[in-house]
Design a protein around this nucleic acid. Structure first.
Length: 489
RNA sequence: CGGGGCGUAGCGCAGUCCGGUUAGCGCACCUGGUUUGGGACCAGGGGGUCGCAGGUUCGAAUCCUGCCGCCCCGACCA
């Protein structure tokens, strides 16, 4: 069998790139740092989007759309946020091209068409949204505002990687406005929970829920809640964040409301987002050296039926029966009717693309009233009676979903190490990586020093971390709970 | 943005050091035939701004200059 994917052991980065390419998820584009998301990759994103959108609606949110461009003066209004993003903003300065007077067929920027005020291409939309909310909010009766938008954003990254970090990416950003601090905090935590549930139940990707230290917090937030996942190379991936923004944006954009006592108060805010980065996390959580492995709940094709050795009427007729029956159970099925490729080739292709279940149907099977059922996660094959195949496959998809999740949990647990001294810290980080659970003295200085010396950062302070007396792994000063360190993407 | 590597057909590469027929090979593609339960075989065929732009030369994929892009490592990054 021709191996087309670099093994993880040989070169993890190359393995990742190979999967993206060979599974048909994305291509590089003519634009530096920007990728083309291909139909199969986009189909995964659509599945994620549809499910998240449903969960957002169930928690009372509605969708809207705000502009791509943010006038610079608005962008800089909330100082910390503007500062945080300043170094990676694309800026529009002109609005017209003209024919170059010297070179035929060449367009150049028309110096006459310089914008009075530059437009920042949104790296996130707090500024434009809060500037709008000012007009929408007068009274406590106008609150809460629970809006989400599906959009693209641009962050001019120095070094990009498909899905994990691209100059332009797709995401959703929720922006909510509340009358009280308590309600806003509840909202931020609720969406944090939604993200964790989505990651675990749909992506089968276990996450640690926690909050960020001041250093790692979103610029402009009072508190950032995060879900942190662990990739197969032992590095952590921040998979989603939900921010309690306090009154920072309300103050910057003068958004106030009259409360029931007719007193003016600043509005409380949250924002929360997940992006196409999740696809990178999905890849690095489950896939293997034979290609992509997808959890059934997010697989664009859940079941593929391959007629063996070739699509013949009798086989296709039976396949179509099975497809209909599975479809009635809400399962997406593709019948491969391509007669220019042989079964072995197709098997390898669908394994590359991570299709969870493959059904192989030949004349011999038909005679014996059976069908071959192959599962992608364990590579096991079984012969199953045609009478029971539909319920068998439905159960199997669920089993695969659970197995992938359990496997990922096991991996995560094996790579969660409690460490109590700095020598061990460094040694564990180098030898097996993963999450290091340690005491930390709570100071930025210690956090910075550990980062300088080891490249590891505090991924989060787990929400459920128990109170436990101890001493800081670096400084030896007292600490009351453990935090999670790791090298991160 | 720094160090290293690479850019020749859709993909993977040889040719570049040392300039010289019509630029090759494997896979893929097209046609015909034989095959067919894990990436089939035979025969024939099509497909190239040699990353881009200048320069040197009788002659450039090959030498020189500049630029662009991609990959790996680092710095940077909520």
């Amino acid at each position: 069998m021709a191996k087309e994917i670099t093994s993880r052991e040989e070169n993890y980065s190359q393995w990742y790139n190979d999967i993206v390419k060979k599974a048909g998820l994305a291509d590089n584009s003519a634009v530096r740092g920007c990728m083309v998301i291909k139909p199969y990759g986009y189909a995964i994103w659509e599945k994620m989007r549809d499910q998240l959108d449903k969960m957002f609606k169930e928690t009372g949110h509605v969708n809207a759309y705000f502009p791509l461009f943010v006038p610079k003066s608005l962008f800089e209004a909330e100082e910390k946020n503007a500062e945080g993003f300043a170094k990676e903003c694309a800026v529009v300065t002109h609005y017209r091209l003209k024919n170059d007077p010297l070179q035929k067929g060449i367009l150049s920027v028309d110096p006459e068409a310089k914008l009075e005020e530059e437009l920042v291409v949104r790296p996130t939309s707090e500024a434009i949204i809060w500037n709008t909310y000012r007009d929408w909010i007068q009274s406590y009766r106008d609150l809460p505002i629970l809006i989400n938008q599906w959009a693209n954003v641009v962050r001019w990254e120095m070094r990009t990687r498909p899905f994990l970090r691209t100059a332009e990416f797709l995401w959703q950003e929720g922006h909510t406005a509340h009358a009280t601090k308590e309600e806003a905090i509840r909202e931020a935590r609720q969406m944090h929970d939604v993200y964790a549930e989505f990651a675990e139940q749909f992506m089968a990707m276990p996450v640690i829920k926690g909050f960020k230290t001041e250093n790692e917090r979103f610029a402009g937030a009072d508190d950032t809640f995060t879900i942190e996942a662990l990739m197969q190379d032992g590095k952590a991936l921040q998979a989603g964040t939900s921010h309690f923004l306090g009154q920072n944006f309300a103050k910057a954009f003068h958004v106030t409301f009259s409360n029931e006592k007719n007193e003016n108060e600043f509005v409380w805010a949250t924002s929360w987002g997940v992006s196409t980065r999740l696809i990178g996390g999905l890849i690095m959580t489950h896939s293997d050296d034979d290609g992509l492995v997808l959890p059934p709940r997010l697989a664009p094709i859940q079941v593929v039926i391959v007629p063996i050795p070739r699509p013949e009427p009798l086989l296709l007729e039976k396949a179509e029966q099975i497809r209909k029956a599975l479809q009635d159970q809400g399962i997406s099925v593709k019948i491969d009717v391509d007669d220019t490729k042989r079964p072995g080739f197709k098997f390898a292709e669908y394994e590359m693309k991570g299709v969870p279940v493959r059904l192989g149907l030949g004349m011999r099977d038909l005679e014996n009233n059976v069908i071959e059922v192959a599962r992608r996660d364990t590579r096991e094959k079984a012969s199953v009676s045609l009478d029971t195949v539909v319920s068998h496959v439905a159960d199997l998809l669920e089993e695969i979903q659970q197995n992938l999740f359990q496997r990922a949990i096991n991996f995560r647990n094996e790579h969660m190490t409690e460490v109590n001294d700095f020598a061990t810290f460094k040694e564990v980080l180098e030898s097996k990586g993963g999450f290091l659970s340690c005491h930390w003295d709570g100071t930025s200085e210690t956090e910075e020093k550990i980062k300088e010396e080891t490249k590891a950062t505090i991924r989060c302070i787990p929400i459920d971390a128990p109170e436990e007396a101890g001493v800081c792994v670096y400084s030896g000063r007292p600490s009351s709970r453990r935090v999670i360190f790791a090298k991160a993407y």
